[in-house]
Amino acid sequence: MHPFVLERPRDLSAALSFGAQAGRNDAPVEYIAGGTDMVQLLQEYVRRPDRLVSLAGVLDDGIEIGSQGLRLGAAATMAEVATHQAVVERFPLISQALLNSASPQVRNQATMGGNLLQRTRCPYFRDVGYEACNKRAPGSGCAALDGENRWHAVLGTSDDCIAVHPSDLAVALVALDASVEIRGAGGDRSVPLSDLHRLPRDTPHLETVLEPGEVITAITVPANAAGLRSHYLKVRDRASFEFAVVAAAVAIEMDGARIRQARVALGGVGTKPWRLPNVEAALAGAEFEPAALRQAAALAAEGTQGRGHNDFKIELMQRAIVRAVEIAGARA
Protein backbone atom coordinates (compact mmCIF):
# COMPACT_ATOMS: atom_id res chain seq x y z
CA MET A 1 0.00 0.00 0.00
CA HIS A 2 1.26 3.40 -1.01
CA PRO A 3 1.20 5.90 1.87
CA PHE A 4 -1.59 8.42 1.48
CA VAL A 5 -3.22 11.26 3.32
CA LEU A 6 -6.93 10.87 4.00
CA GLU A 7 -8.75 14.16 3.51
CA ARG A 8 -12.16 14.56 5.11
CA PRO A 9 -13.70 17.65 3.56
CA ARG A 10 -16.63 19.29 5.34
CA ASP A 11 -18.73 19.79 2.27
CA LEU A 12 -18.90 19.00 -1.39
CA SER A 13 -17.27 22.18 -2.62
CA ALA A 14 -14.32 21.53 -0.34
CA ALA A 15 -14.17 17.99 -1.72
CA LEU A 16 -14.22 19.26 -5.28
CA SER A 17 -11.36 21.62 -4.63
CA PHE A 18 -9.00 18.69 -4.18
CA GLY A 19 -9.37 17.91 -7.87
CA ALA A 20 -9.51 14.15 -7.50
CA GLN A 21 -9.45 12.03 -10.61
CA ALA A 22 -11.99 9.27 -10.35
CA GLY A 23 -11.22 6.26 -12.46
CA ARG A 24 -7.79 7.37 -13.68
CA ASN A 25 -4.80 5.26 -12.88
CA ASP A 26 -1.87 6.72 -11.07
CA ALA A 27 -3.95 9.76 -10.30
CA PRO A 28 -2.33 11.50 -7.34
CA VAL A 29 -5.72 12.32 -5.79
CA GLU A 30 -8.72 10.01 -5.66
CA TYR A 31 -12.11 9.88 -4.06
CA ILE A 32 -13.19 7.19 -1.68
CA ALA A 33 -16.81 6.52 -0.74
CA GLY A 34 -17.71 3.20 0.90
CA GLY A 35 -14.22 1.95 0.12
CA THR A 36 -15.25 -1.60 -0.69
CA ASP A 37 -13.50 -1.52 -4.04
CA MET A 38 -10.97 1.21 -3.42
CA VAL A 39 -9.42 -0.46 -0.40
CA GLN A 40 -8.86 -3.69 -2.33
CA LEU A 41 -7.10 -1.77 -5.07
CA LEU A 42 -4.97 0.12 -2.58
CA GLN A 43 -3.99 -3.10 -0.84
CA GLU A 44 -3.06 -4.74 -4.12
CA TYR A 45 -0.95 -1.70 -5.06
CA VAL A 46 -3.02 -1.25 -8.21
CA ARG A 47 -3.89 2.30 -7.22
CA ARG A 48 -1.38 4.54 -5.52
CA PRO A 49 -2.86 7.94 -4.76
CA ASP A 50 -0.99 10.29 -2.43
CA ARG A 51 -4.28 11.68 -1.28
CA LEU A 52 -7.65 10.09 -0.72
CA VAL A 53 -10.59 12.44 -0.50
CA SER A 54 -13.42 10.96 1.49
CA LEU A 55 -16.89 11.58 0.19
CA ALA A 56 -18.44 10.36 3.43
CA GLY A 57 -20.95 12.87 4.70
CA VAL A 58 -20.65 15.30 1.82
CA LEU A 59 -22.95 13.62 -0.68
CA ASP A 60 -26.69 13.23 -0.70
CA ASP A 61 -27.84 9.82 0.51
CA GLY A 62 -31.54 10.38 -0.03
CA ILE A 63 -33.91 8.15 -1.98
CA GLU A 64 -36.81 10.09 -3.48
CA ILE A 65 -39.62 9.08 -5.72
CA GLY A 66 -41.89 11.63 -7.36
CA SER A 67 -43.57 12.60 -10.59
CA GLN A 68 -40.16 12.99 -12.24
CA GLY A 69 -39.25 9.46 -11.33
CA LEU A 70 -36.64 8.08 -8.96
CA ARG A 71 -33.67 9.97 -7.56
CA LEU A 72 -30.94 8.09 -5.71
CA GLY A 73 -28.37 10.14 -3.85
CA ALA A 74 -24.84 9.00 -4.72
CA ALA A 75 -24.15 8.19 -1.08
CA ALA A 76 -27.19 5.95 -0.63
CA THR A 77 -25.96 2.44 0.13
CA MET A 78 -26.76 -0.61 -1.95
CA ALA A 79 -28.68 -2.03 1.00
CA GLU A 80 -30.79 1.09 1.51
CA VAL A 81 -31.76 1.29 -2.13
CA ALA A 82 -32.38 -2.43 -2.52
CA THR A 83 -34.86 -2.55 0.34
CA HIS A 84 -36.50 0.86 -0.10
CA GLN A 85 -40.21 0.20 -0.41
CA ALA A 86 -40.83 2.49 -3.36
CA VAL A 87 -37.87 1.02 -5.21
CA VAL A 88 -39.05 -2.51 -4.53
CA GLU A 89 -42.56 -1.68 -5.73
CA ARG A 90 -41.96 0.67 -8.67
CA PHE A 91 -38.45 -0.23 -9.84
CA PRO A 92 -38.03 -3.87 -8.82
CA LEU A 93 -35.34 -4.36 -11.46
CA ILE A 94 -33.03 -2.08 -9.47
CA SER A 95 -33.79 -3.84 -6.22
CA GLN A 96 -33.24 -7.26 -7.75
CA ALA A 97 -29.96 -6.26 -9.36
CA LEU A 98 -28.70 -4.99 -6.02
CA LEU A 99 -29.88 -7.96 -4.00
CA ASN A 100 -28.07 -10.18 -6.47
CA SER A 101 -24.87 -8.20 -5.91
CA ALA A 102 -22.12 -8.90 -3.41
CA SER A 103 -23.13 -9.79 0.16
CA PRO A 104 -25.21 -8.08 2.85
CA GLN A 105 -22.05 -6.78 4.51
CA VAL A 106 -20.74 -5.22 1.30
CA ARG A 107 -24.15 -3.80 0.44
CA ASN A 108 -24.34 -2.09 3.82
CA GLN A 109 -21.12 -0.27 3.10
CA ALA A 110 -21.05 0.32 -0.64
CA THR A 111 -22.60 3.39 -2.27
CA MET A 112 -24.41 4.09 -5.53
CA GLY A 113 -21.63 6.29 -6.85
CA GLY A 114 -18.94 3.78 -5.95
CA ASN A 115 -20.88 0.94 -7.49
CA LEU A 116 -21.03 2.62 -10.89
CA LEU A 117 -17.35 3.51 -10.74
CA GLN A 118 -15.96 0.25 -9.36
CA ARG A 119 -13.14 -1.12 -11.47
CA THR A 120 -13.09 -4.27 -13.51
CA ARG A 121 -12.57 -7.67 -11.90
CA CYS A 122 -10.13 -8.63 -14.69
CA PRO A 123 -7.59 -10.63 -12.69
CA TYR A 124 -4.69 -9.23 -14.69
CA PHE A 125 -5.74 -5.69 -13.85
CA ARG A 126 -5.79 -6.58 -10.16
CA ASP A 127 -2.49 -8.49 -10.01
CA VAL A 128 0.53 -6.23 -10.33
CA GLY A 129 2.52 -9.43 -10.81
CA TYR A 130 1.45 -9.11 -14.44
CA GLU A 131 3.16 -6.38 -16.36
CA ALA A 132 0.81 -6.39 -19.33
CA CYS A 133 -2.42 -4.54 -18.66
CA ASN A 134 -3.28 -1.55 -20.79
CA LYS A 135 -5.88 -0.43 -18.34
CA ARG A 136 -3.45 -0.33 -15.44
CA ALA A 137 -0.33 0.61 -17.39
CA PRO A 138 -1.21 2.16 -20.77
CA GLY A 139 0.73 0.66 -23.64
CA SER A 140 1.87 -2.40 -21.69
CA GLY A 141 -0.33 -4.88 -23.58
CA CYS A 142 -3.24 -7.04 -22.52
CA ALA A 143 -2.55 -10.27 -20.69
CA ALA A 144 -6.15 -11.40 -21.03
CA LEU A 145 -6.36 -11.56 -24.83
CA ASP A 146 -4.58 -14.91 -24.94
CA GLY A 147 -4.79 -15.66 -21.27
CA GLU A 148 -7.40 -16.97 -18.89
CA ASN A 149 -10.36 -15.10 -20.30
CA ARG A 150 -13.41 -17.01 -19.14
CA TRP A 151 -14.34 -13.93 -17.11
CA HIS A 152 -13.99 -11.52 -20.03
CA ALA A 153 -16.21 -9.57 -22.38
CA VAL A 154 -17.52 -10.54 -25.80
CA LEU A 155 -19.18 -7.20 -26.56
CA GLY A 156 -17.50 -3.84 -26.97
CA THR A 157 -14.03 -5.34 -26.87
CA SER A 158 -10.96 -3.95 -28.57
CA ASP A 159 -7.52 -5.29 -29.34
CA ASP A 160 -6.31 -3.45 -26.28
CA CYS A 161 -8.77 -4.55 -23.62
CA ILE A 162 -11.56 -7.07 -23.12
CA ALA A 163 -12.38 -6.38 -19.47
CA VAL A 164 -15.97 -6.64 -18.25
CA HIS A 165 -17.62 -3.81 -16.39
CA PRO A 166 -18.68 -5.64 -13.24
CA SER A 167 -21.61 -3.63 -11.86
CA ASP A 168 -25.03 -5.29 -11.77
CA LEU A 169 -26.74 -2.08 -10.76
CA ALA A 170 -25.46 -0.30 -13.87
CA VAL A 171 -26.98 -2.98 -16.10
CA ALA A 172 -30.42 -2.47 -14.56
CA LEU A 173 -30.06 1.30 -14.74
CA VAL A 174 -29.00 1.30 -18.37
CA ALA A 175 -32.09 -0.73 -19.19
CA LEU A 176 -34.24 1.86 -17.43
CA ASP A 177 -32.72 4.88 -19.23
CA ALA A 178 -31.22 6.25 -16.04
CA SER A 179 -28.91 9.24 -15.94
CA VAL A 180 -26.23 10.38 -13.53
CA GLU A 181 -25.98 13.87 -12.13
CA ILE A 182 -22.47 15.14 -12.03
CA ARG A 183 -20.91 18.10 -10.29
CA GLY A 184 -17.50 19.53 -10.96
CA ALA A 185 -15.58 22.75 -10.78
CA GLY A 186 -17.37 23.79 -13.97
CA GLY A 187 -20.84 23.23 -12.52
CA ASP A 188 -23.50 20.57 -12.81
CA ARG A 189 -24.39 18.34 -15.70
CA SER A 190 -26.40 15.24 -16.36
CA VAL A 191 -25.21 12.31 -18.47
CA PRO A 192 -27.24 9.30 -19.59
CA LEU A 193 -25.86 6.23 -17.86
CA SER A 194 -25.28 4.63 -21.24
CA ASP A 195 -22.78 7.41 -21.96
CA LEU A 196 -21.04 7.39 -18.59
CA HIS A 197 -18.69 4.53 -19.36
CA ARG A 198 -16.48 4.58 -22.41
CA LEU A 199 -15.60 1.74 -24.70
CA PRO A 200 -12.01 0.63 -24.20
CA ARG A 201 -10.89 1.22 -27.84
CA ASP A 202 -7.21 2.09 -27.63
CA THR A 203 -7.55 3.96 -24.34
CA PRO A 204 -8.84 1.38 -21.86
CA HIS A 205 -7.33 3.38 -19.00
CA LEU A 206 -10.00 6.04 -19.58
CA GLU A 207 -13.13 4.41 -18.22
CA THR A 208 -15.70 7.19 -17.93
CA VAL A 209 -16.53 10.62 -19.28
CA LEU A 210 -15.98 12.20 -15.87
CA GLU A 211 -13.60 15.14 -15.93
CA PRO A 212 -10.92 15.33 -13.28
CA GLY A 213 -12.47 16.28 -9.98
CA GLU A 214 -16.05 15.61 -10.98
CA VAL A 215 -18.25 13.59 -8.68
CA ILE A 216 -21.45 11.72 -9.23
CA THR A 217 -24.04 13.30 -6.97
CA ALA A 218 -27.14 11.32 -7.88
CA ILE A 219 -28.75 8.81 -10.18
CA THR A 220 -32.11 9.60 -11.75
CA VAL A 221 -34.51 7.14 -13.33
CA PRO A 222 -37.36 8.52 -15.45
CA ALA A 223 -40.92 7.92 -14.32
CA ASN A 224 -41.80 6.11 -17.52
CA ALA A 225 -39.54 3.25 -16.47
CA ALA A 226 -41.67 2.61 -13.40
CA GLY A 227 -44.09 -0.23 -13.04
CA LEU A 228 -42.80 -2.33 -15.92
CA ARG A 229 -42.75 -6.07 -15.71
CA SER A 230 -39.13 -6.80 -15.20
CA HIS A 231 -36.58 -9.37 -14.20
CA TYR A 232 -32.91 -9.34 -13.36
CA LEU A 233 -31.39 -12.73 -14.15
CA LYS A 234 -27.90 -13.52 -13.01
CA VAL A 235 -26.05 -16.67 -14.01
CA ARG A 236 -23.02 -17.51 -11.94
CA ASP A 237 -20.85 -20.35 -10.72
CA ARG A 238 -22.33 -20.39 -7.24
CA ALA A 239 -25.73 -19.51 -5.87
CA SER A 240 -24.89 -16.18 -4.27
CA PHE A 241 -22.13 -13.66 -3.54
CA GLU A 242 -20.47 -13.71 -6.91
CA PHE A 243 -20.08 -11.47 -9.90
CA ALA A 244 -22.09 -12.40 -12.97
CA VAL A 245 -20.95 -14.88 -15.55
CA VAL A 246 -23.84 -13.50 -17.59
CA ALA A 247 -26.65 -11.23 -16.41
CA ALA A 248 -29.75 -10.02 -18.22
CA ALA A 249 -31.88 -7.05 -17.16
CA VAL A 250 -35.24 -7.02 -18.86
CA ALA A 251 -38.27 -4.74 -18.52
CA ILE A 252 -41.30 -5.18 -20.74
CA GLU A 253 -44.73 -3.85 -21.37
CA MET A 254 -47.31 -6.35 -22.62
CA ASP A 255 -50.13 -5.87 -25.01
CA GLY A 256 -52.28 -8.95 -24.56
CA ALA A 257 -50.25 -11.89 -25.79
CA ARG A 258 -47.73 -9.63 -27.47
CA ILE A 259 -44.83 -7.60 -26.20
CA ARG A 260 -45.47 -3.91 -26.80
CA GLN A 261 -42.15 -2.60 -25.71
CA ALA A 262 -38.99 -4.11 -24.23
CA ARG A 263 -35.79 -2.94 -22.68
CA VAL A 264 -32.90 -5.35 -22.54
CA ALA A 265 -29.42 -4.93 -21.13
CA LEU A 266 -26.64 -7.42 -20.38
CA GLY A 267 -23.99 -7.73 -17.71
CA GLY A 268 -20.94 -9.96 -17.52
CA VAL A 269 -20.45 -9.81 -21.27
CA GLY A 270 -19.76 -6.17 -22.12
CA THR A 271 -16.87 -3.82 -21.58
CA LYS A 272 -19.58 -1.48 -20.33
CA PRO A 273 -23.17 -2.07 -19.22
CA TRP A 274 -24.64 -3.24 -22.49
CA ARG A 275 -28.01 -2.17 -23.87
CA LEU A 276 -29.34 -4.11 -26.85
CA PRO A 277 -31.52 -1.89 -29.09
CA ASN A 278 -31.60 -4.48 -31.86
CA VAL A 279 -33.04 -7.13 -29.57
CA GLU A 280 -35.51 -4.62 -28.15
CA ALA A 281 -36.69 -3.70 -31.65
CA ALA A 282 -37.20 -7.35 -32.52
CA LEU A 283 -39.11 -7.96 -29.30
CA ALA A 284 -41.42 -4.98 -29.79
CA GLY A 285 -44.60 -6.41 -31.22
CA ALA A 286 -43.35 -9.98 -30.98
CA GLU A 287 -45.55 -12.83 -29.91
CA PHE A 288 -44.80 -13.94 -26.35
CA GLU A 289 -43.73 -17.44 -27.26
CA PRO A 290 -40.40 -19.25 -27.14
CA ALA A 291 -39.50 -19.27 -30.84
CA ALA A 292 -40.10 -15.54 -31.23
CA LEU A 293 -38.15 -14.77 -28.09
CA ARG A 294 -35.26 -16.92 -29.21
CA GLN A 295 -35.21 -15.28 -32.59
CA ALA A 296 -35.07 -11.83 -31.05
CA ALA A 297 -32.44 -12.84 -28.49
CA ALA A 298 -30.24 -14.25 -31.24
CA LEU A 299 -29.62 -10.70 -32.39
CA ALA A 300 -27.60 -10.16 -29.22
CA ALA A 301 -24.82 -12.12 -30.88
CA GLU A 302 -24.28 -9.40 -33.47
CA GLY A 303 -20.82 -7.95 -33.12
CA THR A 304 -19.69 -10.36 -30.43
CA GLN A 305 -16.16 -11.58 -30.29
CA GLY A 306 -15.05 -14.45 -28.09
CA ARG A 307 -11.47 -15.09 -27.08
CA GLY A 308 -11.65 -18.81 -26.37
CA HIS A 309 -12.59 -19.47 -22.76
CA ASN A 310 -15.42 -16.94 -22.94
CA ASP A 311 -16.95 -18.15 -26.23
CA PHE A 312 -19.76 -19.85 -24.32
CA LYS A 313 -21.07 -16.49 -23.16
CA ILE A 314 -22.34 -15.72 -26.66
CA GLU A 315 -24.79 -18.61 -26.48
CA LEU A 316 -25.49 -18.29 -22.77
CA MET A 317 -26.43 -14.62 -22.98
CA GLN A 318 -29.07 -15.31 -25.59
CA ARG A 319 -30.59 -17.96 -23.36
CA ALA A 320 -30.44 -15.58 -20.42
CA ILE A 321 -32.38 -12.96 -22.36
CA VAL A 322 -35.07 -15.48 -23.30
CA ARG A 323 -35.39 -16.67 -19.74
CA ALA A 324 -35.50 -13.16 -18.28
CA VAL A 325 -38.20 -12.10 -20.75
CA GLU A 326 -40.19 -15.24 -19.98
CA ILE A 327 -40.05 -14.60 -16.26
CA ALA A 328 -40.81 -10.89 -16.62
CA GLY A 329 -43.75 -11.59 -18.92
CA ALA A 330 -45.17 -14.17 -16.57
CA ARG A 331 -45.20 -11.62 -13.73
CA ALA A 332 -48.52 -10.01 -13.01
Binding site: W151, R238, A239
Partner: peptide
Protein backbone atom coordinates in the same frame (compact mmCIF):
# COMPACT_ATOMS: atom_id res chain seq x y z
CA UNK B 1 -5.02 -15.66 -11.78
CA UNK B 2 -7.91 -15.90 -9.32
CA UNK B 3 -5.88 -15.68 -6.11
CA UNK B 4 -8.66 -14.09 -4.08
CA UNK B 5 -12.01 -15.08 -2.58
CA UNK B 6 -14.10 -13.15 -5.12
CA UNK B 7 -12.92 -15.09 -8.16
CA UNK B 8 -12.05 -18.38 -6.42
CA UNK B 9 -15.51 -19.63 -5.55
CA UNK B 10 -16.09 -21.78 -2.48
CA UNK B 11 -19.63 -22.77 -1.52
CA UNK B 12 -21.65 -20.18 0.34
CA UNK B 13 -24.69 -20.95 2.46
CA UNK B 14 -26.96 -20.70 -0.53
Amino acid sequence: TNANLAEYAVPVHA
